[in-house]
Simulated scan of single mutants.
Amino acid sequence: MQHAIFQSFINNAIAVLQESTDMLGLAIAGSWITHETDSFSDLDLVLVSTTKISDNPEQMKAVANQLGTVLSAFTGEHVGETRLLICLYNNPLLHVDIKFLTLDEFHHRIENPVVVWERDHQLTNIIQETQAVWPYPDYQWIEDRFWVWIHYATLKIGRGELLEAFDFLGFIRMMVLGPLLHIKNGNQPRGVRKVETKLALEDFAELRKTVVPMTKTDLVAALWKSIKLYEDLQNHLFDANITLKEDAAQEVKVYLYKVEKM
C-alpha cells in the first residue's frame, strides 16, 4: 500500500517537473534502492536541475509546493546538508526529503539512486561513468575524541546531571558505537539505524547494554560497557596507523572509577 502511495507521489512529481525545461532528472535514494520501503518509510528524492536552486531556500520551497500540499518544510542544516529540503506533505501524509543538485553536483554521490525520470539519459550516463562513495568514519578522528567524550559524560554524572549523561550516551552510540558495529558487520555505517536487524545478535545485545535507566549506578555501568565495547571494536577494526590515546584512556578510567565510588 505504501509503495503505491509513493509511486503516486512520484508520478505526479514527474508530471510537474517535466514541464520545466530547467529540470533535468529525478531519482530516488534511500530504502527505495534496496526495495526495503515499508509503511514507515520516508521518500528520499534527488532533483537535478540546470540552475542551482539549493542556494535559495525560498526557491526550494516553491518547487516543493508544486509537487503536493506542503504542511511544513525546512532545510537540512542540522544534518550538515543545506541542499536538502525536508518536507511534510498532506493528502496523503508523507515525509519527503528533496535534495536539490545541479548536474555537476550529481557526479559526487554516496550511493546510486534509482533514476525515475531524466532528459537525454544525463543522470544514467553519470552513474555509469562515475563511482558512488559512501562516507566512512575516520578512526583517528573517533579515537581523538572518544576519551574526552567519556570524561564529559562522567562529569555530568558526578554533578548529578543524569539526563545530560543519559542523552550523551545516545550521542556516543550514534557517533561511535553504532557506526563501528555496522562496519564490523559489513554494513554501511549509518549511525544506529536498523541495528536491531542489521547487527549480529550478540553485537546488538552488547550495544543494548548501553541503554539503561537514568540512575547514577546504571549510567556509570553504561559508560563502562561503552568503553569495553569501543575497545573491542578497536581491536577488531583499527590498524597500526591509528594512534591510540592510551594515557587519556587510563586517566579517564581512573576518574570514572572515582565517580563510581562517590
Rank of each mutant, 00 (worst) to 15 (best):
K99T: 14
L219C: 10
A221D: 14
W141R: 05
H78Y: 08
V46C: 11
L169D: 00
E81A: 13
I127G: 06
E143Q: 11
V46D: 02
L26I: 04
K99M: 05
N90C: 07
E202V: 14
V259N: 07
T21Y: 15
Y255D: 01
D138A: 12
I150M: 08
Y89N: 04
Y255K: 01
Y139F: 14
K184D: 00
L93Y: 09
S41E: 00
R190S: 02
E129G: 05
W32D: 09
F6R: 14
D232E: 10
I126T: 12
E105G: 13
V259Q: 08
W147G: 03
E58T: 03
L47M: 08
Q59M: 13
V195L: 02
Q7W: 08
W117K: 08
L181V: 00
L233W: 00
P189Y: 01
L237G: 00
V176R: 02
G170Q: 03
L199S: 01
A200E: 11
F238L: 04
Q7N: 09
N185Q: 09
L244M: 13
S72V: 14
N235H: 10
L233Y: 00
N112V: 06
N187E: 05
L101W: 08
R193K: 14
P137L: 05
Q250C: 01
H108S: 09
N185M: 10
K253D: 05
Q122C: 12
T102Y: 06
L67K: 01
I98N: 01
L199Q: 01
D38A: 00
L219N: 10
W117A: 07
A200V: 03
L93I: 02
D120C: 07
G178T: 02
H95S: 09
F204R: 09
A64W: 14
S31N: 07
I53D: 02
I183G: 03
V96L: 11
L155P: 02
F166M: 03
K216C: 04
V70P: 12
Y139M: 05
L43N: 00
T82H: 06
T37I: 14
N112H: 08
V48F: 04
L229P: 13
R83L: 07
G191K: 05
W32I: 00
F40Y: 13
N90Y: 11
N11E: 11
E231S: 02
A205F: 03
L123E: 03
G76L: 08
E202S: 01
L229D: 07
E19H: 15
R190Y: 04
S54T: 04
P57C: 12
K209A: 06
M174K: 03
T21L: 14
K184S: 01
Q7K: 15
S39T: 06
E196Q: 11
G30M: 11
V79K: 07
V115M: 13
A222I: 13
D232Y: 05
G170S: 00
T243P: 00
A153Q: 09
I5K: 15
L256Q: 03
S49K: 03
D22Y: 15
K261Y: 03
W147K: 02
P113C: 12
V16A: 14
N235K: 08
G25V: 06
L88A: 04
R83M: 13
